[in-house]
Each structure stands twice: as C-alpha cells, then as structure tokens.
C-alpha cells in the first residue's frame, strides 16, 4: 500500500518537475519562469525527503525556494523581460 503510494507520488512529482523544467525554457514571462524554478527546487526537496535525506531536504528548501528565487528576482528587476 505505502509502496504503491510512494511510487505514485514520485512518478507524479517527477513528471511535474520535468514538465516544469521544460516550462522554464518556454514560458514567455520571465517572472513565471523564476517562480517555476522555485517550484522545481521545492519539489526536489520533497524528493530528497522521500529518499531519506532530511538534511539535504531542509537545505534545498531554504536555499532553492528562498535565496535563489530572491537573487533571480533581483536580477529580473535590473534587466527586465526583454530578450
């Protein structure tokens, strides 16, 4: 039961992550791309937790979802969406 559930969770999450990774490249608005990258990092943190790596999960959640997103938002505020 739990094995099937875990497999289903990982398959769904992995499919969403790869789809989001492709969406980062093709979505038109740069702000959306930054938010989607944050989503990829957060899903990766869930996946680290499923792989019994709580330290890595905490680090990825605090860094990928907060610090990296803030850095990219700062860069977008300086450059803008063009190109």
């Amino acid at each position: 039961m739990t094995e099937t559930l875990m497999t289903a969770i990982v398959l769904t999450l992995g499919g969403m992550m790869v789809a989001a990774g492709i969406a980062v490249l093709f979505v038109r608005d740069l702000l959306s791309a930054i938010i989607i990258t944050g989503f990829v990092s957060l899903s990766a943190s869930v996946m680290f937790l499923l792989m019994d790596a709580p330290d890595v999960a905490i680090t990825e959640a605090s860094i990928g979802a907060v610090l990296a997103t803030m850095i990219f938002l700062w860069g977008r505020g300086k450059i803008g969406d063009d190109g």
């Binding site: 330290d55 680090t59 605090s62 860094i63 610090l67």
Partner: peptide, 17 residues
Amino acid sequence: SPGGGFPGGTVIASTFL
C-alpha cells in the same frame, strides 16, 4: 537532528532579507 551549519546559516540570512 537534521540540520546543521549550512541550512541554519541560510535561515538566518533569510531573516536578514
């Protein structure tokens, strides 16, 4: 427990932010 210098440091840096 899970945690350590790196995640703790980033959490503190996020309070600065």
